[in-house]
Design a binder for these strands. Sequence first.
DNA 1: ACGCAGACCTGTACGC
DNA 2: TGCGTACAGGTCTGCG
Length: 269
Amino acid sequence: MPELPEVETIVRQLDRLLSGRILRGLQVRDPKLAHLEPLAGSLAGTRLGRIRRSGKRVILPLEDGEAVRGWLAVHLRMTGRLLLVEEGEPEPAPARLCLELDRGRLLFADTRRFGTVDWLTGPAELAPPGLDPFDPACTPAALAELARAARAPLKSWLLDQTRICGLGNIYVCEILHASRLSPWRAAGNLELAQWRLLHREMRRILRLAIKNCGTTFSDFQDSRGLEGSFGRMLQVYGRAGAACPRCGAIVQRETQAQRGSWWCPGCQE
DNA sequence: ACGCAGACCTGTACGC
DNA sequence: TGCGTACAGGTCTGCG
């Protein structure tokens, strides 16, 4: 479910509310997460450090005095949610994992159970798989260089997390529309000026989405169960048959690399 | 280097 | 109302 803006929304909220709190215990409630079972005893009493994002993962550092014991890396995939439950409140959804805190608890709920939680012990594992869109090293020239000679369609190219990380189907569709580029166009064929435009629109759209706490398409909610409002600003995603807000042509949907692609044939080429 | 199918899971929306 | 089907924001593996 969540892409960069949704993960960023969750991370900012969790960092504000949880950083510095003490972990009292960890309950593994889904056998698919049994690999975390051995941690349950040893992590009790550790303190949550500054919570951050790596690609689409939520990183929860667990500290012991000055030393970092390790990091819990949560990937929410399609339906994962991290829900903060106050002392005495009922749990709003069945949880796969429960972090008991000094007061209240943090639940990992995930209907489709695609999400993953890993225990990382080395900084190398923390690095995102590709270039983060807000990394200063992510420049139009760097993107052009990465895509040199790539024959893959832009849509698939941008979705590959080992190049740019954090984009998913919704934002790629929106970014391509804003950049007037067709999802079918080969990534290696762009002029530098088009990479500049794409780069600018990518950052603009992601910033705007973060400001609006992400997109709630079907089931994204933040850690207190609230919904993001960027969904109202979508120009093409999920809008097949509607008029393009920019040129009035009819938005098309077509399957591309097994995923839906929405775009406007009137103004994207 | 790429596209594609299938896998992992469950819920929802829609047509009949 | 009930049933079957298609589809879903992500990513991995294996095949051609």
